[in-house]
């Protein structure tokens, strides 16, 4: 019970700053000395029309974030396992190397990346945007999963094998259930990084890939505060949904690598 109250409090503190956004999204205009604005649904109805491109942006963001998360998982699971479970010469160097894309500003690498992607014909495509999103999602995913695997006792796998589980069954029945919370946390990180990415998407997308941050940016430029607030709130949705659905997995005490372990 106290845990639930604490959770609500945290949510309150986290989301209170967003209250003005919510008010703005329902306001026709909200200026001093008005205490409450003139209420309207117009911002939200504009949001749902095709001309605002919000639907398209939402969809493209979702697809790009989902693909980058999936690919990051595909690389991060084996890489995190290697870093977390085994010792090999140069492990520290590999970890540092992994952090490079996070340390080096994308501004510095942007030119080169764009040059290569144009040559490959990937500039302005969803695949190209996914590729540049992997630059930061893979390191985060690998680092999260390596700390998850560091807490995982691989003797469980030996035990399962000797009881008759094939290597695929071991992965399905033992390893994945035990590291699930860590995988969820890693996936959440990767998804949100990709979802919120602006700079690289803006350049590599060349205006043809139009994600939600870009829709927000154009709306902000046009000075429509109400619509911008509505889009901003929309952009919060996936993270909230993700958290709600994963809270059960994160709460699982028997499994390792939940939020407490990362």
């Amino acid at each position: 019970m106290t845990r639930k109250i604490a959770l609500l409090l945290i949510i309150g503190v986290l989301f209170l700053p967003f209250l003005p956004l919510l008010v703005w999204s329902f306001a026709e205009g909200w200026y001093f000395p008005q205490l409450v604005p003139q209420w309207t649904m117009q911002n939200w109805s504009t949001l749902l029309t095709t001309s605002a491109k919000v639907g398209q942006g939402f969809w493209q963001s979702l697809v790009i974030a989902a693909i980058s998360t999936g690919l990051a998982l595909l690389v991060g699971l084996p890489a995190g396992r290697a870093l977390g479970l085994s010792d090999f010469p140069g492990k520290g160097a590999v970890k540092l190397f992994l952090l490079l894309p996070i340390i080096v500003s994308p501004l510095a690498t942007l030119m080169g990346i764009q040059f290569i992607l144009i040559r490959l014909g990937l500039s302005g495509t969803i695949m190209g945007v996914v590729l540049v999103h992997l630059l930061s999602t893979i390191p985060y995913m690998t680092l999260v999963l390596s700390s998850v695997y560091a807490n995982f006792d691989s003797d469980y796998e030996i035990q399962a094998r000797s009881l008759g589980a094939s290597s695929v069954q071991v992965l399905q029945q033992i390893t994945l259930p035990l590291i699930a919370p860590g995988v969820v946390v890693g996936a959440l990180f990767a998804f949100l990084i990709s979802w919120n990415e602006f700079l690289l998407t803006f350049f590599v997308g060349s205006g043809r890939v139009f994600t939600l941050p870009m829709v927000l940016f154009t709306s902000l430029q046009s000075g429509n505060t109400g619509l911008t607030a509505a889009i901003a709130i929309t952009s919060l949705l996936p993270a909230l949904i993700f958290l709600l659905f994963s809270s059960r997995a994160l709460d699982n005490n028997t499994a390792i690598g939940g939020l407490g372990n990362v």
């Binding site: 006792d153 030996i158 035990q159 094998r161 000797s162 009881l163 290597s167 033992i174 035990l178 499994a255």
Partner: peptide, 19 residues
């Protein structure tokens, strides 16, 4: 492979699957 050797291994830690 170990799963087809008709053997069962019991380790010191017991290693019951916690989930």
């Amino acid at each position: 492979p170990p799963e087809r050797r008709d053997m069962a291994l019991v380790l010191q830690k017991g290693l019951l699957f916690p989930h």
